[in-house]
Amino acid sequence: MDETQDAPRQDAVPTDDPGPTPLADGSPDDLTQLDPRYKTMMRLVAGLFAIVLLVGATIAELAIPGWTGVVWAPVLLVVAYIVFYLPMRRYATRGYSLAEERLRVVRGVLFHSDTIVPFGRVQHIDVDQGPLERGFGLATLTVHTAGSHNASVSLPGLAHETALAMREDIRAAIRRDTR
């Protein structure tokens, strides 16, 4: 019977699986991971924010007499989450690929997005470096397509050389296409 054959398949694709479903045509393994330094940079940014948070918590703690830790404890939990856990998760969920003349950018811990921009639609390419990114030798690659909405796709956390190389790749592909 058909049902017996279908049964194991149904188990393999449970609809109510709360785990992260691998998106789209290809599992995350054919994606390239970002530069590991990006994780450190996210930690640093979160750390700066955490310091502000901790200072605030300390002031609140001193202002409220008694009950030591009533502010500190939850704030420490939040800090641990944003400094240690979140950058790790964000790093793990991000990836890109340049296969088949398409730029694919996958990102998002809670809100997942998986974008594909074929090289043939790229209008121009930006390689940006913020002050922190410069310190870490990282860069953000942004490709712009024609149009107003959702018209630019940016990929942060690339090594600067990688970003420049990718820019050359995409540009070369555009040139090849139009000739």
């Binding site: 992260p20 809100f111 997942h112 997005s113 998986d114 974008t115 594909i116 639609r121 024609a146 018209a151």
Partner: peptide
């Protein structure tokens, strides 16, 4: 004539497929 394609999922959408 489309420029890019993105598949987006929020937490509920991912849970419910």
């Amino acid at each position: 004539k489309l420029q890019s394609v993105e598949i987006a999922q929020g937490p509920i959408a991912r849970l419910r497929g």
